[in-house]
């Protein structure tokens, strides 16, 4: 038991390190904050759906701050294994030692665990979250012969980009149906301009033009572009402008070049930039 007490102490001191200390800037778009709070009160697992760079990660940080809960984020990748989430035995001078993975730590300390871009992970990896996301709220560590009961503050959040969805990469129904979902999208023009201005320091007028450039690229989604310009890219462009780069050049660098390799498309996007600046 001494061991487990020791572990508890480490875990307790770790809790602090995962707290979001400073209030993140988050501009609510609809009633997502209230809805999330309600979901958290009943510890409902939540999935955030939406295109890249539209504010999902920022939202989770903000909610963690607001609820004063630790936040542990994991970027999921294709070659991630269940052990990367749950933990594994490590070898050191004293022999083997169990090392918790991020999911296990989150379950023990009562953190919000954010699995970013969950579809990237293989399905045999994602199933480890199942017992944590139903009434059981527990995590069996088979290799450690331990059953971790989730701390009462623990909550699981995943993010998910429906655009990337393909036959190969999709969540199983049995995974999907363990979550409540919040739809994210690019905010309406006025709000997006406010966000871009806030994050970059450019004035709202420039931010508004950037948002319109973004909107024209989003018109081309599915018609030559896989995805329109994200809020994140618009902020990049604005940051360059704030650094003194001329708008056309800033847009080329931050908005056009990253988005497409198709010369016709790039030419068109540059022309679209010119219709606003």
């Amino acid at each position: 038991m001494a061991n487990s007490v020791g572990q508890m102490q480490i875990v307790e001191s770790d809790r602090d390190q995962y707290l979001v200390k400073k209030e993140p800037y988050y501009r609510a778009v609809a009633d997502e904050v209230e809805n999330y709070q309600a979901a958290y009160r009943v510890r409902m697992p939540v999935m955030l759906k939406g295109p890249t760079g539209c504010g999902k990660s920022r939202f989770v940080e903000y909610m963690a701050w607001m609820l004063q809960k630790p936040l542990i984020s994991v970027a999921c990748t294709e070659d991630m294994t269940a052990s990367d989430l749950v933990g594994r035995h490590l070898l050191d001078i004293n022999g083997t030692r169990w090392q918790d993975g991020p999911l296990t730590v989150a379950a023990r300390i009562g953190a919000i665990c954010y699995l970013d871009e969950i579809v990237e992970a293989r399905q045999d990896t994602t199933v480890v979250i199942h017992p944590l996301t139903d009434h059981r709220r527990e995590l069996p560590l088979e290799k450690n012969a331990e059953l971790v009961r989730a701390h009462e503050d623990f909550q699981l959040v995943i993010s998910y980009n429906p655009g990337y969805q393909s036959l190969m990469k999709d969540l199983k129904q049995s995974t999907k149906q363990r979550f409540g979902g919040l739809d994210f999208n690019y905010p309406s023009a006025a709000i997006e301009a406010e966000i871009v201005a806030h994050e970059s320091g450019v004035d709202v007028e420039i931010a508004h033009k950037l948002v319109q450039v973004g909107a024209s690229s989003r018109n081309l989604k599915g018609h030559g572009l896989d995805e329109g310009m994200s809020t994140r890219l618009l902020i990049y462009a604005a940051q360059l402008i704030a650094e003194g780069v001329a708008p056309a050049g800033a847009c080329r660098m931050a908005l056009v070049t990253p988005l497409s390799d198709d010369p016709d498309m790039r030419d068109t996007l540059n022309a679209a930039v010119d219709t606003y600046f």
């Binding site: 024209s216 081309l220 018609h223 498309m265 030419d267 068109t268 996007l269 022309a271 219709t275």
Partner: peptide, 9 residues
């Protein structure tokens, strides 16, 4: 290009 352009706008 023109198709893209008009659709973008």
């Amino acid at each position: 290009k023109l198709n893209f352009y008009l659709r973008a706008l």
